[in-house]
């Protein structure tokens, strides 16, 4: 028996619904793009834009203190209050101060560790260190904060160790908050700096040395400029996370309040959501200011 090869044609494709959609989309790039972006954009709008707008609008509401009912007529009373009352200025300055200190401490600790990890450690050592840096992230935030509460308490480990060199525990207060926050956010600062240092080619360092630059000069003129975006990325983490924190302050902060606590008490104790929303705008404004300043330096483009 012979096969009629001339007639063995390719079977015609079946016209399924999926195929029709696919072929019509291939002809319409705009529809394709719209479909692709619809889901993530809806998410973005709902979660970020609507939430932010809701925050802005509810800051203009007021609340009936006795019944707790929200009065939805718009007024600027809350914003005026946070702008004029000295309480909010004091707490804002305190919060920003703590956030700056935490960031400075974290960067100061992260730089040498990241440099060692990226440039000096052996492959094996590097892997061990990356794991060591990441491990604390597996433990709950609360557990870490409460651990510091017991470390810093009267008669705790810190006091025991510090007494040997003639020091005392700082006790619960802002120092304790800075220590605890610096500890909790440290991995978020080390990792971007480590990644940034890995991208600095060793050949550049060698060339700099060959051309007679001292170690310090190499650091200052080669490494640091290339590293600035990474440092800023890390600082955004530690700064913004500290800015919004209220749990650590509650646990180790003694009688101190930060912006987060004011939001928390206004939501929880005072049942004044509009005022809480108004206070929540303060860290948002600060972060927008910070990010704008960072953007001017051009650091964000190099991320």
């Amino acid at each position: 028996m012979s096969v009629d090869t001339a007639r063995a044609a390719v079977p015609e494709t079946r016209r399924t619904a999926a195929r029709r959609v696919s072929s019509s989309l291939s002809a319409r790039p705009r529809a394709r793009l719209a479909l692709l972006l619809a889901a993530p954009l809806t998410w973005l709008v709902l979660v970020y834009v609507v939430a932010l707008a809701a925050l802005l609008v509810s800051a203009l509401w007021t609340v009936d203190s006795f019944t707790g009912e929200i009065n939805r007529s718009l007024t600027f009373d809350n914003l005026k209050e946070i702008a004029t009352e000295s309480l909010y200025r004091t707490v804002t300055l305190r919060t920003v101060g703590v956030a700056v200190l935490v960031t400075v401490v974290d960067v100061a600790i992260a730089l040498p560790i990241a440099f060692y990890m990226a440039k000096l450690a052996s492959q094996r050592m590097q892997r061990i260190l990356v794991i060591a840096v990441l491990t604390p992230l597996w433990a709950s935030y609360l557990v870490k904060a409460f651990a510091w509460r017991s470390v810093l308490s009267d008669g705790g480990i810190f006091q025991w160790a510090a007494s040997r060199i003639g020091l005392d525990t700082p006790g619960y207060g802002l120092t304790a908050v800075v220590i605890t926050q610096a500890y909790i956010w440290l991995p978020y600062v080390i990792l971007p700096i480590f990644a940034g240092l890995e991208r600095v080619p060793n050949s550049l360092l060698d060339a700099s040395g060959d051309l007679g630059a001292s170690t310090w000069q190499t650091m200052r003129t080669i490494v640091l400029p290339m590293l600035t975006p990474a440092i800023i990325a890390g600082s955004i983490f530690s700064f913004s996370l500290t800015l919004g924190d209220y749990i650590t302050v509650n646990i180790v902060g003694g009688a101190n309040q930060m912006l987060g606590n004011l939001v928390y008490t206004n939501v929880g104790a005072a049942n004044n959501l509009p005022l809480a929303a108004a206070i929540a705008l303060i860290p948002i404004v600060i972060m927008i200011g910070y990010l704008t300043a960072v953007r001017r330096t051009g650091a964000l483009e190099n991320l």
Binding site: F66, L87, Q257, T265, A269, A270, N272
Partner: peptide
């Protein structure tokens, strides 16, 4: 605490609970 004094005074207005909560955040500073 409500504006109408609980001790029966009619000639003054008492501080209500919203003033109390506001003062409390100020006390903590």
């Amino acid at each position: 605490p409500v504006a109408e004094c609980l001790d029966g005074r009619k000639d003054v207005k008492c501080m209500d609970y919203s003033e109390w909560t506001k003062a409390w955040t100020e006390i903590k500073g």
